[in-house]
Amino acid sequence: MNIPKITFIKINKREIIIIIALLILAFASYFIINNKGPGAKAQIEVAQNLYGTYDLSKDQDIIIKDSKGQIIMTAKISNGTIRVITSTCRDKICIKEGAIDLSGQTIVCLPNKVVITVINDNNQIDGVLK
């Protein structure tokens, strides 16, 4: 009775690869389709004006300029976090703050008047009452 069962699951290498590939594809597509987009974003303000909002899922370097166009800071987004890598300020507290990634966390550079805030996309504004 056991013999036919053994022959039943006798599948060659190529077929195993196909089946595994299909399963991986199925899982991958589940995550791709169900992905509601990157959750967190970083919002950068310079002198109380919104400078820009950046996806934390997209690795990039952001050059921050003041109102005169002078480069005052560089921020780096990597692995879903943001940190300051260069700044023209004297004490470099903003660089020492390190990387932030949680909603509500901030990096503040008082001399350069820069505020970087992590905002959660799940809490986005649905409408503005004018």
């Binding site: 509601k36 799940n122 809490n123 986005q124 504004i125 649905d126 409408g127 503005v128 009452l129 004018k130």
Partner: peptide, 13 residues
């Protein structure tokens, strides 16, 4: 209500 929350976030200008 939206899927991710029990309410809509409305900004008051």
């Amino acid at each position: 209500k939206p899927v991710e929350r029990d309410y809509f976030n409305i900004a008051v200008q």
